[in-house]
């Protein structure tokens, strides 16, 4: 099963759709968690997910905001969607009835 950070990354990438790339995913995770996301953790996790076939990455176009440097684009694969659904279902099932989940 996915790890929690892997799930955050896949979910952020899925939410961003065609605009999913390193910096955007990082920003999305930081907004959702309220914690800083290190570039080291981000890119090593992206590599791990790509090795598992859960995401696909490629170098995208450069933009002036990025100093003319390319982005690393990320797309979640169907296998990645399935893995994320599995993780979400497991979290939902195990969280039923606990005090911090609103009924």
């Amino acid at each position: 099963m996915l790890g929690e950070f892997e799930y955050l990354l896949i979910t952020a990438a899925a939410a961003l759709g065609d605009d999913a790339y390193g910096a955007a995913i990082r920003e999305e995770i930081q907004s959702a968690t309220g914690h800083r996301c290190s570039i080291g953790a981000l890119y090593t996790t992206i590599d791990r997910l790509e090795t598992k076939g859960l995401v696909k990455t490629w170098m995208g176009e450069a933009t002036p905001e990025r100093g003319g440097r390319s982005k690393r684009m990320v797309r979640v694969t169907p296998k990645g969607v399935h893995a994320a659904k599995e993780f979400y279902s497991a979290i939902t099932r195990i969280s039923q009835g606990v005090s911090w989940v609103a009924h």
């Binding site: 390193g22 910096a23 990082r26 290190s38 570039i39 450069a62 905001e65 440097r69 390319s70």
Partner: peptide, 25 residues
């Protein structure tokens, strides 16, 4: 290429950027 672009976009300070790059390495 990707990391420097991300850091340029995020407009982080030097120390944090150095930590990020070294952390990744």
């Amino acid at each position: 290429e990707a990391v420097l672009g991300d850091l340029a976009e995020a407009n982080q300070n030097v120390l944090r950027s150095l930590f990020d790059v070294l952390g990744l390495y």
